[in-house]
Design a protein around this nucleic acid. Structure first.
Lengths: 210, 210, 210, 210
DNA sequence: AATGAATGAGGGTTCATTCAT
DNA sequence: TATGAATGAACCCTCATTCAT
């Protein structure tokens, strides 16, 4: 059993897993994503996840070492996919201003197609805690995003295109604006997500302009 | 029992409550605030709240119809106090630009002194759900804040001081920037909260400028 | 709730407990004793213990911090009662040989009246393990008994009444002979327990004689 | 499947098994022995045994009708090997006193070389229960040992070398002394096992002497 | 006005066993 | 022969709520 092997310290990469096992794990993660997005973290018990997946509760324990591992794999998966979507869109933009705009609008495009994944991600980020009671995914998780945004801002500042401002505050605010855009659209599905993204990009274009 | 009366439809205003009852309710709410802020929503059980308040678990059930009512009163209380703090600081600013800046910086000042209350509020907002599984406090709760910010923006746009932009997007983004400022400071206590607030105010001053 | 108080570090002595609580704890311990004695350690789940006590499963969790505490209190209680029975019978015997005989025969007398308690104790001793997998009550627990027996042997050796022998081996063997007497009688209820005790006492009287 | 045949009443002797099957069964039993000795009865799940054997969990079910049969074969195997070791050492001693001494010291010699097997045996003896909750291996299992010891005692009594005593009590006590010697040494590996055995043999030599 | 006591549902996890491949 | 996959029951524990006192 995969999850038992792990308990003796040998981590198992996806490459070592059989097709059928990968499929089951994916199915379970999908069910977890839906449950988290639609019922919230507190209600996302293994029983409910299993029910949604149409399987027995024990199957989850068979494929994952525990709930903790399931959620961590879920986060990894969502992150990877989002990164794979974003990266080519970023490198194509040489100008810092364009890169910032592309960042905002690409994320909106991703949201449009992956609403439940991102909603689930938010639940895990805001709620999952380690055994000491600290948030498992805290601000430290966003550090990568902040660093990326800050690199854009510094480049713009050095070229003189951007005014002088605190890059950390700007990064935190940009990311907050994007997250809020998602949450607002998540609650108001009729909301014009792409329009919001364009306005948001323009907002920050003005905010950073020299 | 007070909370029972309420459950049969006769709402009880604070004016009808004895001093001692009000004190107990306040004590319980304070304990709930601390527990939510320090241990998170999932760990904030009635038992833990009672333990922190130094009272028996049953006392909470006596003074509140249930956990749901306790959390709702908690939200009300925090909101009221924040409003009482903010209002005079807003009316003193006739200029829209100044009012926006005052809004951001006054909230930062409030955060500085009421960190745990706001952290608890965030926990309830992000987690509390009604019996149908929907978030009890969703974006609808922020509608008042959005409306207030939008009124500032419209006034600035009509006077020509602000450029044309989508006031709803701007309002959502301002509020998101403020919330993110709190969360970042909450996790990084050494972070310069007031400096962040000034940068944030300047950011949006630039963003709305005509 | 008592067991919750304990979780914040304030140990609660029996003197602080209400009569009714003490009665419930005693009732639960009694049910645990019976379950352990009759069904064995592996089958002595909280559910079965509760069933035997005629109460809900949660009541045990209410009165004890967990299964671990229940079993530790059980061991304490059985030990205390046995000690209270034994002590006056020991101090009344000034001669080492008589003290050894009194030890064996008093324990047999105690077994006669407290079969299930001792059977339960044996289950816990042989099976209860701490979180690291080590036996919770190992040989260390018997150290007190060994020391007591050794003091008898040394006194007899110094007076010349006993021959020279390894007092630790003798102590371990005496205790083993007594434990085996209990187990044999536990399985063969028709076995002559008091006769066995007399024979056993004579056996060791011969074994230690100078 | 082999183990299924058995379940419909056709017992399968080792002679009917292929070499490879016998090897597998031995490998599984060895893994079970180690697991029982090191982790205790409660933790000796099929999963853990399989893990230690480096095989899949299902293999055990294939080669044994169930956990029950595995443990029974384990007991048989350990017993057989111990008997094969002991028998020649017993027949070589014509004198009852010497035979008793040889019994004690030979068992100590066997313990020295087969610690884990005997520890595993103890776990099974003290814990394994049948479906009715009774100990699978109780005192009845020791009946053979008792009978053997009693035959020595009677021979000594008839020749006048031993005094009159209850042979059953003496047999139970000798066996208990030996078992306790093992357990004490198992917990205190630095303990002088052979010295203990000599002392124990002398103890009972004194105890039976006319 | 407050308490301690009790409940029953649901939480995550472990387990022996079964079964198709 | 052997495996991985799946099951369902039982495990201990936590929880919000109810109730008699």
């Amino acid at each position: 059993m995969r999850s038992e092997n792990q308990s003796i310290g040998q981590s198992v990469s996806d490459a070592d897993r059989s097709f059928i096992e990968l499929a089951r794990r994916a199915q379970i993660i999908d069910a977890a994503v839906e449950t988290l997005a639609e019922e919230g973290y507190a209600k996302a018990s293994l029983a409910r996840i299993a029910q949604r997946a149409g399987i027995s509760k024990g199957v989850i324990s068979y494929h994952f070492a525990g709930k903790e591992e399931l959620l961590e794999r879920l986060v990894e998966q969502v992150y990877e996919r989002m990164g794979a979507f974003m990266e080519p869109r970023m490198v194509a933009q040489p100008d810092p201003g364009e890169r910032l705009r592309a960042y905002v609008e690409s994320l909106a495009a991703y949201m449009r197609e992956h609403r439940v994944q991102l909603a689930a991600l938010g639940q895990v980020f805001h709620n999952m805690r380690n055994s000491e009671g600290k948030l498992r995914y805290g601000v430290a998780t966003s550090e990568g995003l902040y660093a990326f945004l800050e690199s854009i801002f510094r480049e713009g500042q050095e070229s003189g295109a951007f005014r002088r401002f605190d890059v950390r505050v700007m990064a935190v605010s940009v990311q907050a604006g994007i997250d809020a855009m998602f949450e607002y659209w998540d609650v108001h599905p009729e909301h014009d997500l792409e329009g919001h993204a364009r306005e948001l990009a323009e907002l920050f274009a003005q905010a950073v302009r020299a």
